[in-house]
Structures are given as C-alpha cells and as structure tokens.
C-alpha cells in the first residue's frame, strides 16, 4: 500500500513540474525515479523513453505507465498514469475559468521565459550525463557513435520522423552481427 501511495505522489510531483513537451519530463524522472527512489536504472528509463517515443500516445504518459507497470504491475501503471495527469486536470480547469487573467499577465510571461531557459539548461546537463554513460557502457563504441551522428544529421537535415530514426538505429545495430556471420 505504502509504495502505491508513493508511486502516485512521485508522479503527481513530476506532472506538476513538467513544463512543455515530453522531453522536459526527463530530468525530473531521472532525479525522482532513478536517483531518489531508485525504482529504475538510468538505462531502463532511456529504454522506456525510446519505446514511449514509438508507441502511440503522449511520451510523458507512456514513460509514466511503463515505470508504474515495472514496479507494481497493472495497478502501478494506472496509478502512475493518473498521478501524472492529475495536476494537468486540476490546473487547466482552474485556468480555463480565469483565462484572460492568465494569458495577458506580464509576471506569468516573465516567469515562463525564465522557466524555458531553466528547462534548456536541465536538458543540456541531462544530455551531457547520459552521453557520458552511454559511451562508457557501449560495447560497440564506434558503431554507436556513428548511429548518434547519423541520427542527428537525419533529424537536422531531413524531415524524417522520430519513429523512423529509432527504427533505423535498431536495424543498424545488427550490422556487426551480420558482418561476423558473413565472414564465417
């Protein structure tokens, strides 16, 4: 019982402080779920994130559901999902009734501009930490580094979707195995 309440509260907190798209949730998840509660490893989080990217639905919700399921099965999945959407439901219903007060408020605008910068910094630090870790753990460093560069180029220079990028990367991952088999 205790862990179920904790699961709900943790994801409620994450939902409350995620500003923007699915990516903004990553630093929060890493700090709460990986570092503080130690429910997931960093690798598991990144895997859930990759899968959440390719399955239908909102990425942040997918990652929340995934983490909840890993910890406490179906009940866990429902609780974490509910936890992450609860703050949205409460806040949006409040703001929707006071819409004009909110939209034209200068202080709100300044606060949001500040938060956006903060989110940029948080994600930069996260990328830096994760890159270090992925590189250290990788068993095919050259291949994985090329996948990173190739994906980056695809995403920046073409309008290939995130889903396609992830699928291509998983296919390229099998190259060393196929080459080895070809030599035999």
């Amino acid at each position: 019982m205790d862990i179920l309440i904790k699961l709900f509260c943790s994801f409620f907190k994450i939902g409350l402080f995620t500003f923007g798209g699915g990516y903004a949730i990553l630093p929060l998840l890493k700090s709460e779920v990986v570092e503080k509660q130690k429910w997931l490893t960093e690798d598991e989080l990144l895997d859930y994130f990759s899968i959440g990217q390719c399955t239908p639905g909102i990425i942040a919700v997918n990652v929340a559901t995934f983490s909840g399921y890993k910890l406490k099965g179906i009940i866990g999945a429902i609780l974490t999902t509910f936890g992450i959407i609860c703050p949205s439901i409460i806040i949006i219903c409040l703001i929707a009734s006071l819409l004009n007060l909110y939209i034209d408020n200068q202080t709100v605008e300044h606060a949001l501009a500040g938060i956006r910068i903060g989110v940029c910094a948080l994600i930069s630090v996260l990328i830096f930490d994760m890159a270090k870790k992925i590189y250290k753990q990788s068993r095919h460093k050259k291949l994985h580094f090329s996948i990173f560069l190739l994906s980056l180029m695809l995403l920046l220079l073409t309008d290939v979707s995130a889903v396609l990028t992830v699928i291509s990367a998983s296919v390229i991952g099998f190259l060393p195995k196929l080459l080895k088999r070809g030599q035999k």
Binding site: S50, A131, S138, L143, A169, G173
Partner: peptide, 14 residues
C-alpha cells in the same frame, strides 16, 4: 543489441 543501438539515436532526438 537493439536497445543498445537505439540509445544513441534517442540521445540525438533529445
């Protein structure tokens, strides 16, 4: 193997 290859791609996405 698949997950190992996807991780750097997700890093690029982020």
């Amino acid at each position: 193997i698949m997950l190992g290859a996807i991780r750097p791609a997700v890093l690029a996405l982020i």
